[in-house]
């Protein structure tokens, strides 16, 4: 996984609530399009024109390639498709700031080195207002703060284990595999306690 420490750049304000992962990437794109190319199809339903002349915020000259997305409440709700995160990454997004996130999308972000930052609504609105003209923000995971051009500093917290994993670009599978013996011991006990789990013919 790609590590995340800090990112500076334009922050696209896109404050619609309940933006679901179907809208971020259509499921059909996940059957044929390679992961690296998904950015082209991100938010397809909202980009009425072709790429380049669409009015969608991430297609405007100011925000094309913006590494920061300031999103509305419950961003990434709905389907578990991790392709939604890949599609955002394909657009160049490294971090999303919002009041809240869909639970599965939130997990999927951390799995890919994308930082979801949860802030209260007034802080999100304030940052969005500052970012509107294209002035760059900094989202700093090391310091645990968002810095705005006005000098405003908005602190945020990230779960300590998630934070560490992002900073290091940790491979979770590798880490868990070091506990293989513990898992085997648990399963051996479980076979005796709940034989029906293991009897599946």
């Amino acid at each position: 996984m790609q590590p995340f420490t800090a990112v500076t750049g334009p922050a696209a304000p896109f404050l619609e609530p309940n933006v679901n992962t179907d809208v971020i990437i259509r499921i059909e794109r996940l059957t044929g399009v390679p992961r690296e190319d998904l950015g082209r199809y991100a938010f397809e339903a909202l980009r009425h024109g072709q790429e380049g002349d669409s009015a969608f915020i991430l297609d405007t000259p100011t925000f094309r390639g913006a590494p920061i997305l300031i999103a509305g409440r419950n961003f990434g709700c709905g389907s578990s498709r991790e392709g939604a995160v890949w599609a955002l990454m394909g657009l160049g997004v490294r971090t999303v700031v919002a009041e809240s996130f869909g639970d599965i999308f939130f997990n999927n972000c951390f799995q890919n080195g994308v930082l979801p930052v949860v802030l209260p609504k007034d802080a999100v609105d304030r940052l969005a207002a500052e970012a509107t003209g294209g002035a760059g923000l900094t989202v700093d995971l090391v310091a645990g703060e968002v810095r705005a051009p006005s000098g405003a500093v908005v602190p945020f917290t990230v779960d300590p284990q998630r934070r560490q994993a992002l900073l290091e670009g940790l491979d979770e599978i590798g880490v868990t595999l070091t506990r293989a013996d513990e898992i085997a011991a648990w399963q051996a006990r479980d076979r005796a306690a709940r034989p029906w789990i293991w009897a599946a013919a």
């Binding site: 578990s80 498709r81 991790e82 995160v85 599965i104 999308f105 997990n107 999927n108 799995q111 890919n112 979770e172 599978i173 868990t176 595999l177 506990r179 293989a180 898992i183 399963q187």
Partner: peptide, 16 residues
């Protein structure tokens, strides 16, 4: 509960 691809792969590899 539902999981994304990375967690799914983690579960296949570790059963956890």
């Amino acid at each position: 509960f539902g999981v994304g691809s990375s967690e799914l792969t983690h579960a296949l590899a570790t059963q956890t």
